[in-house]
């Protein structure tokens, strides 16, 4: 009603005012986003690319332009191969085991149980995401403490009767970072999948049950097909965020022991800020920027992300 009135008023005001108003709307609504994008994306990317063609080192001085950083990436850096391999393993395993499968199981279980219990459980699961990373990792540090006072060791020794305490940080560091990231990563998928499951009309479940489908058949034939889009979305989004974020790993293992848990993003960080190879770090970062942009565009096209902008597909409650 009022939208129509607005339109009428605008029409009466004439094309000139309308154009001005549209321009004003543009500035008001898109302005902040554009400023932020330029400030925190475009400018840093330009600086990064420029730095990557220099020899900037610990002294932060630039003596000349060079392509030696790129030559190093494509030939000189043997550690890089191992880092990339680890990154692929880390991203794929975290995504497949936790961010998708575990999130899906959580969503299915919490929607199948009583609503109150489900909400409570999901709330608890969200707590670590809402608390500061440092706090979350501090909890993990306590859990995996290699002495008999760590939570894990207490359980293993008193409940399962293990003789000597174990030290996951040194014995299974890759598994540790996958689990630590996965536990928090699963919560996003859980929330999105839960909303999507809730949005499935109840009649479909009733119809399927009457048609003879058991729980597993219902999940397979009714729930999962309805989750196609949310699963795609979570996959693309989490791949991106797993590729570029490293704060939990940095806090938990500092990339160690040695370089065992140094994923690509952390490798850039360590090269630049630990060993002071700023130019080399910048060159490495160029690739992750390109990869990020590529993934975002791929997601945009392949998973029909445009639809996300058109109308709400999920109801967050």
């Amino acid at each position: 009603m009022s939208a129509i009135a607005d339109d009428l008023r605008r029409e009466r005001a004439g094309p000139g005012r309308q154009r001005n108003r549209r321009r004003a709307n543009f500035v008001i609504f898109l302005g902040p986003a554009i400023v932020l994008t330029i400030l925190f994306f475009v400018i840093p990317v330009i600086i990064d690319v420029v730095v990557s063609f220099t020899d900037m080192g610990r002294s932060l001085q630039i003596t000349g332009f060079t392509t030696e950083q790129y030559e190093k990436i494509f030939g000189g850096d043997r550690r890089l191969v191992q880092v990339i391999g680890l990154t692929l393993l880390y991203v794929f395993a975290t995504l497949a085991i936790f961010n998708l499968t575990f999130a899906l199981v959580l969503a299915l279980v919490t929607t199948a149980t009583n609503r109150m219990t489900g909400n409570f459980f999901r709330g608890v699961w969200l707590l670590p995401r809402m608390s500061p990373s440092v706090l979350y990792i501090l909890l993990w540090v306590w859990v995996i403490n290699p002495s008999e006072f760590g939570l894990l060791n207490q359980i293993l020794m008193s409940v399962l009767g293990l003789e000597t305490p174990i030290d996951p940080l040194n014995e299974a560091p890759v598994m540790l970072i996958i689990i630590a990231n996965g536990f928090i990563g699963a919560s996003m998928g859980m929330i999105i999948f839960t909303s999507a499951i809730r949005a499935i009309p109840e009649h479909l479940f009733h119809a399927a049950r009457v048609d003879g489908a058991g729980s597993m058949a219902i999940i397979r034939h009714i729930t999962l097909p309805a989750l196609r889009w949310p699963i795609s979305f979570v996959t693309i989004y989490q791949t991106l965020s797993l590729l570029v974020s490293f704060e939990y790993i940095l806090l938990l293992t500092e990339g160690g022991p040695f370089y065992d848990t140094t994923v690509y993003a952390l490798y850039i960080f360590r090269r630049a800020f630990d060993t002071g190879q700023y130019a080399y770090g910048a060159a490495l970062a160029v690739f992750i920027i390109a990869l990020g942009v590529f993934f975002a565009l791929l997601g945009w096209r392949f998973f029909d992300m445009q639809k996300l902008l058109q109308r709400p597909r999920i109801e967050v409650q």
Binding site: P201, L204, H206, A207, A208, V210, H221, P225, R228
Partner: peptide, 13 residues
Amino acid sequence: VGIVFQSYALYPH
């Protein structure tokens, strides 16, 4: 039992 729902409840995919 066969049932026809008011909304038909056909499986959309």
